Computed example of a mutant assay.
Amino acid sequence: MPEPHLRAADADRAAAVTRLDQGLTDGRLTLAEYEDRAARAHTARTYGELAELTADLPRPADRPRPVARAVYGGPWHGAWGHDLRAAWAGWATTAVVVVAVWLVSVVATGDLRYPWPVWVVGPWAVALVARTIGARRRGQPGT
């Protein structure tokens, strides 16, 4: 950070408020603390004033990994920050439900000609297969 006596710009004040936002989101600040600090950040004139407001908050590089990422970010962790195992589980659950509905309608009507569940789960399966293959090509271990 530049010298504390130098004047801060609007972008510096916005960056400080962003850190305060994250502190509130992480549960490091109460709502009252956040409101007070954010108001002071908007009126801060120097880097030193901004530094005081965020001194007790971890810098973005120091922040621990989010719990969801730490727990689920294993070898099945796929593209766009999503968990491939959860994506496949969602697909399988949906497939079971729509096939069950279709089977009930087949039993009720006796008409097997139109297997409509393929239009629900088919394109989704193609997208998941492509995503899984993409994760393997990127070299994510265990995918």
Rank of each mutant, 00 (worst) to 15 (best):
T43F: 08
W124A: 05
R113Q: 10
A51K: 08
H82K: 08
E3K: 07
G134F: 00
A16Q: 05
A55M: 04
A32G: 07
V106G: 05
R137Q: 01
H77D: 09
A100K: 03
A100Y: 06
L103N: 06
A8R: 04
V107W: 13
V126T: 09
A51Y: 12
L57G: 11
A11Q: 10
V106L: 09
A11K: 07
G78D: 06
L103W: 14
V104W: 10
E3S: 11
D21G: 14
Q22D: 13
A79Y: 00
G74N: 07
T143V: 10
L20N: 06
D62Q: 14
A68R: 03
L29S: 03
R85W: 12
R13H: 13
V96E: 11
W119F: 15
R37T: 06
Y34S: 02
L20S: 07
G78T: 03
V97E: 06
A11D: 13
A135I: 00
T132F: 08
H42S: 07
E3T: 08
P64R: 06
V71C: 02
A51M: 04
A79P: 00
L84Q: 05
L24Y: 15
Q140D: 00
I133S: 02
L128K: 02
R131S: 08
D26I: 04
D10L: 15
T109F: 04
Q22L: 14
A95R: 09
R40L: 12
R28K: 10
P60E: 12
A41Q: 00
A87K: 10
G74C: 02
W116Q: 02
H82P: 00
